[in-house]
Design a protein around this nucleic acid. Structure first.
Lengths: 211, 211
DNA sequence: TAGATTGTTAATCGATTAACAATC
DNA sequence: TAGATTGTTAATCGATTAACAATC
């Protein structure tokens, strides 16, 4: 059943496909060819067909792809329908920004809990989710199996919190701290968002662009 | 003078090198070999030497690399010493999180201004930076040439704001909105941080990991 | 039907890894 | 000096692109 491993390059493009298809869908576009999609996304038609062929056959000769159903297929591939759950650790500015502005549900996740150490926020709700004391994390995870822990704690707390998430049985950690989490011995997946790395790459590119 | 174009894979690794070297430097490590660095970063020694060779010769046979000076060299390559400036557009939760918690200076940037539409925050300071009315953006950019615009506005405002940044002569846009900015006709560089893409990739990987 | 477009195989291109002479 | 490790060239591997028969 399981195909050969899908390359990381392909995996990174899947959410982009999903995003573009959603835009097309909302714009009322019914069908699209690989070449038209490629033009819109700055990819070759070949690459799109090659990417999709990792997962099955979703098109139709002479027609192209049905936008709505290809979107659904990709949602399926991305496991968006699996009722994933997420908890946020640390509700400072960034944690709060994610809780209030990021639509977890649009990626197939439900935000089920928020943890923090600050007595001023514990017991309150943020975005309709209760903020709990961090001491309750271990118990909470034991009683409420959770897909992903969102790490938005200060640098100093990052490693300890990551360890507790792993112990608590999460399947993935969405890491916003600039700490490199070295938990490769477990089979928990770490997805990093390194703001500084992104800005430095931009710094390089704008300088390169001038010369 | 200009070497052949450096591949994007290499550019993306440079900030990681910088980050690891900083950690080593702060830990008091004086020298490191490509193989030791590779082990720490999960790269091959070969790749590290190949990457660095795009920019010059920074090591010494039989010794390896001096941590501090290699770090400095990479900072130089990343253009960290060029007094880049940044302005934030939109000081909602995310803009505020960046203004207050992200250390622009550590990436060689100075946050010089913040713009918003909300009368309740205009005139106040966030992280010692004045929040100005968005109407002043065009004039501000004219009078204060700015390297990068940080886009943390709502989706609806994104395209318009991006256009004004481009008109205002910024060299790069750090885009946190989930809107695809299509400004490839200009030579402004867009660096995207797509939270949803990142979470969906994680969703895929944790599901894949189970089967 | 004729035209369009897929899925897939083969060709090309680029990036990573291996090997090694140079040398600190 | 002998051992270690670089920078670089060559070999390998993987990803992207091109081509085309199949077919809607």
């Amino acid at each position: 059943m399981k195909k050969q491993k899908v390359s990381s390059a392909v995996i990174r493009r899947l959410p982009r496909y999903y995003r573009h298809l959603t835009d097309l869908y909302l714009a009322g576009v019914v069908r699209i060819s690989s070449s038209a999609l490629g033009k819109a996304m700055n990819l070759t038609a070949s690459q799109i067909r090659q990417d999709l062929s990792c997962f099955g056959e979703f098109g139709q000769q002479g027609y192209g792809y049905n936008v709505s159903s290809l979107r659904d297929e990709i949602a399926e591939i991305l496991a968006m329908g699996q009722n994933h759950t997420a908890v946020i650790l640390g509700v400072g500015n960034l944690g709060r920004a994610l809780a209030e502005n990021f639509h977890f549900d649009r990626s197939g996740f439900t935000l089920t809990a928020i943890f923090d150490v600050d007595p001023n926020v514990i017991g309150k709700t943020v975005s309709n989710v209760l903020v709990r004391p961090i001491d309750e994390l271990d118990n909470y995870l034991k009683e409420n199996p959770t897909s992903v822990g969102v790490l938005t704690v200060p640098r100093a707390a990052a490693l300890d919190m990551a360890e507790r998430l792993v112990q608590g049985g999460v399947k993935g950690i969405w890491n916003f701290t600039n700490v490199e989490l070295n938990i490769s011995q477990s089979d928990v997946i770490v997805e990093n968002i390194h703001f500084a790395d992104s800005l430095l790459a931009l710094s390089y590119m704008i300088s390169e662009n001038e010369t």
